[in-house]
Amino acid sequence: MTRLRITGWKHRRELSLLALKDWPWAGVNTLAGALAQAHINLPFLLMQGGKDGVWVRLCLEQGKRPQAQALAVELAQAHGWREPLVREPVIALTFYPLAGGMTLPAEALACLAGAGLHPLALGTSLAAMTVILPEEMLPAAVEALGSRFDLPEGASPPEERVSVVQSPVKRKG
């Protein structure tokens, strides 16, 4: 079988996954606003509307999870919505390029399933695909995916270590 060519992958560790079920869009918006006020970034976000409300999976830095969870619980209790479920630690494993086709997500899911691994969530962007996995699954996932994708032998996805600062004060010059 021809191995699938990808140009890059990376992973981000020490994340928490919050799951919300059947929240109204307005409630999700309120929570997103509160997280923004608290300067909490969401490196992965999936919101799916349904007949009973919105199902949400969002990732954030594990260190920010207590604050984010408290904000979500406060909203849930105030409005009678379901409280968030938390899974941690999780990793975000990102692959490039998506190349506008279903091949990458289908191959990745099939390959992981073949190793008995099921991602907690998956999402695509214009250029990439990210899968969210329990952190302990990283070695097994890398081994399984490395056998299907065309990467140098023994390659492991580099860890993303980038910080972007947002300041409320605009600097001159």
Partner: peptide, 14 residues
Amino acid sequence: LEPPLQLVSCSLMW
């Protein structure tokens, strides 16, 4: 599938 299925976006949750 050949040719591969064209995609705009894909997501999965459990």
